[in-house]
Each structure stands twice: as structure tokens, then as C-alpha cells.
Amino acid sequence: MIPRRVAYVVNVFAKLSETFITDELASLRQPDEELRHEIVAGAGLAERTVYDSREFLPDLQEFRPELLHAHFATKPTATARALAAKLGVPFIFTAHRYDIYARPPEDFADRAAAAAAVVTVSEANVRYIVSTFGVPAAHIRLIPCGVDTERFRPPDQRRAEGGGPAEPPHIVCVARLKPFKNQQLLLEACARLQARGVQFRCVLVGDGPSRDELNRARARLGLQRVVELVGAAKQTEVLAWWRRAAVAVLTSNSEGMPVSLMEAAACGVPAVATAVGGVPELIEDGVTGFLTASGDADALAGALERLLCDPDLVARFGAAARRRVVEHFSLTRQVDRLLALWRSLVDEVER
């Protein structure tokens, strides 16, 4: 039986850099610290939101959830675990990236053992959780984040062609400006492309602590005319950038499963990305884009140049990327898998 009441526990909600949570839940309107959500058609999330931690337990006792689901293995999981014990219901958590590789809780294995199941978003994550924390593979469920492939889709061809002057092909990177995202590598690749006379424009969409450093590098490399840092963007703005893009790029040193590349693929945009974390599970090298070694600016520039200079290759890879994401990484597929897991856990409790 599909549970009718599930409470979500998150740390910060809703974040522009974590749209996978908002997409998983539905339409969201305002930020909060902890969220509960009843799976009822047409239910509004704003009226199912709890801000004050002192109200979590009494509100949940009134709500009577059948399951708690936390996102990230850190504070949200600790909170969900404590609440679930008091409510007498199971809890699960989804582990993404930083809570696995960068700042995992010291008692990750204990939290995993207490949970009814651990969800994670890539096969690479599964392997790491098993080898590093000793969590049995059978206790882990692989459910990649999904993208709304009806919303994120290629532009209408007639509208895309337009009537204005042609602009240079766009390289678009949608990512937080943080050290592990390593946009410095992208700037170095752009400097190589510019030196070779390749026509392009590169747009970095996102914000973060590396912004000043990247602006200095942009000036030092003489990229002011071809590289733009446009700041954080809402999903509607991100969609508009993907529809202008010729190539998506991600140069991270570490990843779980990057939703930004799913969005690009859904819009028919091929990608060039470093082969880290779950990225090789998303990009089929030489079919939907190109994979390069982490930290290799020459390889990155070469892969970008191949696409920037070959519109037919962009079209072929882009169509293949769209097919792949619709088949394997749609939001519908994610929700179906999640509901199946919830159903199995609730049925197990009822037995």
C-alpha cells in the first residue's frame, strides 16, 4: 500500500542549488528548515510546512506520518531518526555528495543501520558507502534524482531560429561557485579555446564563495569578452540558458549525480564533464557528450572544441542525450522508484 502521509526532513529549503528536492516534492513557494508533505493530489506544500523545531513533534503527532524521509545524512537524518523513534515509525534518508565524501557524519554506519533503508543517487555512491562505511549493499537503494522532461525540453525550432543575428555557440555551466566545482579549470580551457581562435561564449550560472577568485582569473586570462558570470538563477532562468546552449560543461573534482547535466540533456544539449562520481553514469562518452580526466584543461578544451566546431555532432549528441535522460533519469521514473520503496517499507511494518 502506498503511504498516504510521509514527512520530509531537510536542512535548508528551498535552495536554488538543490532543486532536486523541490522537484521531488512538487511546487514550493518559500524557504524553511523542516518540511512535511502529505501525498494527496492537489495538496499545497506551503500549508504543510513547519519552521519552528519546537513544533516538529506535536505537529507530526497530529499529522500521523507513516514514514519519515530525510535528505542528506547529516543533521536532517539525525532529526528524522529522533522523531521517528518518538513516533514509532520507520525513517529513511537519501545521501547525495558532501554528506558522503566531504563531511559525512562520524556515525554514518550507525545511522544507516537504524534507517529502514538508505537511498543514494549513483552507483559510484553505492560503492563508496559500502567500502567506506561498511553498509551492506542490500540495505542501499539506488534512486537517481530525476528531471521534469516535459518542462526541460528543447526549444520550439521556429522560435529557436529567430530573426536576429547569429550569436556564437554558448558553453553553459550551471553550478555553485565552490572549490570542488573547479570552474578555474573551465576558465583555463576557455583561454586555450580563445588562443586557438575558436568562436564561443561561456556563461557560468551560479554563485558562491569562489566568485571573486574566478573573476580575478577571468581578468588575468583575458576572458572578459567571452566569459560571463551571471550569478544564481531561478529554474525558469536556468531553462532559458540551457535552451541557448550548444554545450553543457561541468568541471567538478567530486560529484554525486549532477542534476544540472540532466536538465541540459533533457533540453537536447550535449555535455563535456570530468569523469567523477556518478557523471559517467549520466554521460555516455562519445554518444551523449565527452568525459575528460579531472584537472586536465587540455583535454577539456579539446572536447569542447570538437563540439563547438561541429554543429552536426552537437545535434546528434544532443538528441541522444535527450533520449537517455527521458529513459533513465526522468522525474516520473524517480518518483515511481521512490513510491515503490515507500510501499515496500510500509507493507513490511504492517506485516
Rank of each mutant, 00 (worst) to 15 (best):
residue 296 D to I: 02
residue 150 E to K: 04
residue 228 E to A: 15
residue 215 N to W: 05
residue 24 E to Q: 10
residue 131 S to P: 06
residue 295 G to P: 11
residue 240 A to R: 12
residue 223 L to D: 10
residue 90 P to G: 03
residue 222 G to R: 06
residue 64 R to Y: 01
residue 265 A to I: 00
residue 104 P to W: 08
residue 48 R to D: 13
residue 86 K to H: 12
residue 238 V to I: 10
residue 220 R to L: 12
residue 265 A to K: 03
residue 56 F to D: 08
residue 309 C to Q: 07
residue 264 A to P: 14
residue 317 F to R: 04
residue 89 V to M: 00
residue 177 L to P: 12
residue 296 D to C: 03
residue 121 V to R: 02
residue 206 G to L: 03
residue 179 P to G: 13
residue 128 Y to F: 11
residue 262 M to F: 02
residue 220 R to F: 11
residue 71 H to E: 09
residue 85 A to V: 02
residue 14 A to M: 03
residue 100 I to T: 11
residue 207 D to L: 08
residue 96 H to Y: 15
residue 335 V to L: 12
residue 42 G to A: 07
residue 260 S to I: 09
residue 317 F to Y: 08
residue 327 E to D: 10
residue 232 A to S: 14
residue 209 P to S: 13
residue 62 E to Y: 02
residue 37 H to D: 07
residue 347 D to T: 05
residue 175 A to G: 09
residue 163 G to W: 00
residue 291 L to G: 12
residue 210 S to C: 09
residue 24 E to A: 11
residue 113 A to D: 10
residue 303 A to V: 08
residue 304 L to E: 04
residue 106 E to C: 00
residue 281 E to N: 00
residue 171 I to G: 12
residue 86 K to A: 12
residue 336 D to V: 04
residue 121 V to E: 06
residue 155 P to C: 09
residue 286 G to D: 09
residue 75 K to Y: 14
residue 128 Y to P: 10
residue 116 A to H: 05
residue 280 P to Q: 02
residue 219 A to H: 08
residue 141 R to V: 14
residue 98 Y to D: 12
residue 172 V to W: 05
residue 190 C to Q: 05
residue 65 P to Y: 02
residue 274 T to G: 12
residue 222 G to M: 04
residue 52 D to W: 03
residue 144 P to I: 06
residue 7 A to L: 05
residue 264 A to I: 07
residue 347 D to E: 15
residue 200 F to C: 05
residue 78 A to C: 12
residue 89 V to R: 01
residue 79 T to M: 14
residue 187 L to M: 09
residue 296 D to E: 07
residue 10 V to T: 03
residue 218 R to Y: 01
residue 349 V to W: 00
residue 199 Q to N: 11
residue 230 V to D: 14
residue 316 R to K: 09
residue 325 V to A: 06
residue 274 T to M: 04
residue 135 V to H: 05
residue 318 G to M: 01
residue 58 P to R: 01
residue 158 R to W: 10
residue 156 D to C: 11
residue 89 V to C: 02
residue 85 A to E: 15
residue 121 V to K: 04
residue 27 S to W: 02
residue 304 L to G: 08
residue 27 S to R: 10
residue 175 A to Y: 01
residue 100 I to K: 11
residue 20 F to W: 10
residue 50 V to T: 15
residue 338 L to H: 02
residue 270 P to W: 02
residue 205 V to Y: 09
residue 208 G to F: 07
residue 31 P to M: 01
residue 282 L to F: 01
residue 146 G to D: 01
